[in-house]
Each structure stands twice: as structure tokens, then as C-alpha cells.
Design a protein around this nucleic acid. Structure first.
Length: 417
RNA sequence: GGCAGGUUGCCCGAGUGGCCAAAGGGAGCGGUCUGUAAAAUCGUCGGCUUAGCCUACGUUGGUUCGAAUCCAACACCUGCCA
């Protein structure tokens, strides 16, 4: 597929969901269009793990999101710059995003998921760290000190550094450097953190504009601010309003990201609070979401694009999506099952391989297992979002949502074929 | 023929009188994963009527309150000597 070449950047809303914030639209980037809602595949280290770019394109992904922190550590933003930018470097001709490293403030700072599910009572914010983990990120007002997970060396990220790195790597859409907090942090900390993320946003915008003015930009890079505020309505709304009203030299952010601690039950509510404050003519990206129910919830509450590591990570660990729910192909029930993962799926994997074969590949620890299951899972999510877009345009979103979710979360086991 | 070492749960392998249904791996079985320190990680893993009982550490017999652990014989396996 040849991406359409466009000069600037922009977002044009299309069909709206009656009475709701959800809509279709088109994001224009120098490397082509993104028809929204859209799922953006994650390729943290400039590769969607285990899959060729041609396959990523073939499964319908419109854009790829890489990570500034990871690529800064390895191979270095200068290498990517010399290669002609992120897209050229990784042989991905379509639109690209880079995340700022803000998520790593949390993931390297406190550890991960187990922690997020734990009780927070009696813990000071500084105690919030996973057992047995070493804190690899330390936040202060000016920025973050990272300890490289690769070699232990110390690195300093500030809003300015993140902008410089992301400009050097040249993705079409870049994110402001934010602090991603967890649900475990106290309300007081969340409040101080959002305020700091706002101050960082100002610095990001200023540095972004300076770099655009003084640098030699290969093309227009769009800067998205990130709305934080955890589960608190006033923090979320205020954060969104502050970012929307922020302009320097007459221009502000090109779009908005929604990030941070999201209670699963309140995902829709939180997204709605934020999107109600955001202008209609700017794109909204929800960071890190991909479960089917979350996708519907996010879209109907105003999100245009989102990304998530889950489809690919889970695929490498043998879990696959079907219209009737998720299952692990390592399950014994797959050993003699010669049907595809999902009869309804049109992906390369489902049209060529059986559950029994994938089961075998995982048991034998063959790399192709990861490749094939990633192709399937990414296709599953991309297609779901494509179908949601079509249902909005056709006026049948609600029916489609009920239909999909009742089958996906219904009692029929996907292992039964 | 002689001397020495060995035989442990599906597999490998610790354990040399009670805290041993037996460490640790692996396999098997099941789960988890939401801006990727992830080809990671957790649980389970003899049976049952499961705070208890039964069956188990090559086989048979013995010592002992008590044996995978000590003794004897036998069966196989591995070295070295003839």
C-alpha cells in the first residue's frame, strides 16, 4: 500500500455518534492518512515484535507507535536521524507516533501491574514500588533520572530532552513528556503530579516550537499533549482545559493524549470528562487500551486513536482473541484441533494455519508461533476498530456493540471451537 | 571371577534414622498480561471420603518406637583390576 503524501497535519471529524462524543474522522500526516477510530500498533523498539512491516501493513494497521526512551537508549536518536527518521529506519512508510518516555516514569519507577492491583492504604508515595524491583526512574520538578535497564547507566530526561529526541527521530505524531502515575498514588500526589505534567507541557510546547523554528524539520511533526489526573474528575477536567487553553506564539497542541491511571470500571467516565473539555477539531489518542469492551467504551466517549502492547505481548505468550473470547493456544484442547483460531477471521494466520499447528509451535518453542499469533491478534483488534468505524458511519454502532460484546464475553468457550 | 560405586515420583536429580508425599530442574495441566526492563510470569503437579488416611524412594526379608536413609540376600547398571 502506498501512503498518500500530505504536507501538513490535521484532523477532520466525520460522522458523529448521536448524543455521544464518539465520531469518525481522518488524521492527515505527512506519511498518509489515518481513518479514525483507529488502532495504532505498538512497535516500541522500532519493530512490532516478531512481525515484518509488510505483515503489519497487510493486517490493516494504519500507523505504528514507537518509544522515545527505548530508542534513545538503543540505538540512539542520532542513529535513527542518520537513517532518515523512524519510518525509514524501520521500513514503515505509513504514519508513525513516538511516545515520550512518560510511561517509563511509572513502569520503571515503581514496577508494574501486581502493584497496581494492591491496596494503597498506609503507603507513602515513595514506598510505592514493586517488591524485589529496583527503582529505575526518579522524578523531580525538572525531569526524570533514569537508570538504563540495559547497562545501569544514568540518563536524564526533561521535557526539553524528550522533545529533542522525538524531533530527531522524526515521527509524525509525538507526545509531550508527562508523568504517568499509578492508582496507588495518593490524591495529594496525583494533584501535584498533574500540575507538574502541565508545567512540563508548557516546556514541551516551547521546546517543540523552538526546534521547529531552528531545526531542519524533514516534515511537520504534530505534538500531542497528555491529559493526566487519574480517577479524579476535577483533576482530569482541569488538566484538559489547561492544555487546551495553552498556546505559545499563537499556536497550541495538535492533539491530545489521555493517559495514566485508569480504573477499568471508570474508563468511559474518565474519557468522557476529558473529551468533553477537548475541542472537536483536534484528534484524541487514548494511551494503552485494547480490550474489546474498553475499545467500545473509549470510542463512544470520544477517542479517535489508541495503541496497546497487549495484542502483541499476549500473542507471544500464547493468548489469542476470537469473537467468542480469548484463549491460550497452549491449552491441551488445541492439540488435535485442526480448525483456525477464529473461523470468522480473515488474517494470514487464520487462513493458513490450524490451532493444532500453533499449539505445536508454542510447545516446541518455535519463533513462528509468536509471529503468527501476533499477526492474528493485531488483525483482530484492527478489524474490530475498522468495523466500529463502519458501524458509526452506517448508524448501527449500538447494535454492533451489543452484538460483539455479548458474543465476546458470553458463556460459550472459545476453546470449544 | 575380584574390588568399588549406583538403582528416588512421568524424566533428570537432591536427600544418608524422625521436621519426607520426599529439595531443585524439566515435562504435563491451568491461568495472567492494557502508552513493552516481557519469546515474561504465577499456580498446580501420587491417590482419596483432604486439619485425616492410603500407596510410594530396585526386590524380598530384617534392625528400630520410627527407615528413602542402617543390615542381609537377590536383581539389574557403571567403573577399575584379572
Amino acid at each position: 500500500m502506498r501512503p498518500e503524501r500530505v504536507e501538513g497535519f490535521g484532523f477532520t471529524p466525520g460522522t458523529s455518534l448521536p448524543g455521544r462524543l464518539g465520531r469518525t474522522g481522518v488524521i492527515m500526516t505527512p506519511h498518509g492518512l489515518i481513518r479514525t477510530p483507529a488502532f495504532v500498533a505498538v512497535g516500541t523498539k522500532a519493530t512490532v515484535k516478531a512481525v515484518l512491516p509488510e505483515s503489519v501493513a497487510a493486517l490493516g494497521a494504519q500507523a505504528v507507535l514507537a518509544n522515545a526512551y527505548h530508542l534513545y537508549l538503543q540505538p540512539g536518536a542520532d542513529v535513527i536521524d542518520a537513517a532518515g527518521g523512524l519510518g525509514r529506519f524501520m521500513n514503515w512508510p505509513a504514519p508513525t507516533f513516538t511516545d515520550s518516555g512518560g510511561f517509563q516514569v511509572m513502569s520503571l519507577g515503581v514496577g508494574f501491574k501486581k502493584m497496581l492491583a494492591m491496596k494503597t492504604d498506609g503507603l507513602e508515595d515513595d514506598d510505592v514500588i514493586a517488591e524485589g524491583k529496583t527503582r529505575l526512574a526518579q522524578v523531580d520538578e525538572d525531569g526524570v533520572t533514569f537508570t538504563s535497564y540495559l547497562d545501569g547507566s544514568q540518563h536524564r530526561f526533561t521535557p526539553e530532552v524528550s522533545m529533542q529526541i522525538q524531533h530527531q527521530m522524526g515521527a509524525d505524531i509525538i507526545f509531550a513528556f508527562d508523568e504517568c502515575t499509578t492508582l496507588m498514588n495518593t490524591r495529594d500526589y496525583q494533584q501535584r503530579s498533574v500540575a507538574r505534567t502541565q508545567r512540563w507541557a508548557v516546556r514541551c510546547l516551547a521546546e517543540h516550537q523552538r526546534l521547529r523554528r531552528e531545526g531542519k524539520p524533514p516534515h511537520y511533526q504534530a505534538l500531542f499533549a497528555v491529559v493526566q489526573g487519574a480517577q479524579f474528575e476535577n483533576l482530569r477536567r482541569q488538566a484538559a482545559r489547561d492544555l487546551v487553553s495553552l498556546t505559545l506564539e499563537g499556536s497550541g497542541f495538535d492533539g491530545y493524549g489521555i493517559g495514566g491511571a485508569l480504573e477499568k470500571e471508570n474508563l468511559g467516565t474518565i474519557v468522557r470528562w476529558v473529551c468533553e473539555e477537548l475541542p472537536e477539531d483536534k484528534a484524541r489518542h487514548l494511551l494503552g487500551i485494547s480490550e474489546p469492551n474498553d475499545i467500545f467504551t473509549a470510542i463512544e466517549n470520544g477517542v479517535d486513536t489508541f495503541d496497546c502492547v497487549s495484542p502483541s505481548r499476549v500473542a507471544r505468550n500464547a493468548a489469542v482473541y476470537t469473537v467468542r473470547g480469548r484463549f491460550n493456544v497452549t491449552a491441551a484442547a488445541c492439540r488435535w484441533n485442526f480448525s483456525p483460531i477464529d473461523e470468522h477471521c480473515d488474517c494470514y494466520t487464520c487462513t493458513h494455519y490450524t490451532r493444532a499447528y500453533l499449539h505445536h509451535l508454542f510447545k516446541a518453542r518455535e519463533m513462528l508461533a509468536s509471529t503468527l499469533c501476533t499477526i492474528h491478534n493485531e488483525r483482530f483488534v484492527v478489524r474490530l476498530v475498522d468495523d466500529i468505524r463502519a458501524s458509526i458511519e452506517a448508524g448501527g454502532f449500538s447494535e454492533f456493540k451489543i452484538d460483539v460484546l455479548s458474543r465476546y464475553y458470553g458463556s460459550h468457550s472459545p476453546l470449544m471451537g
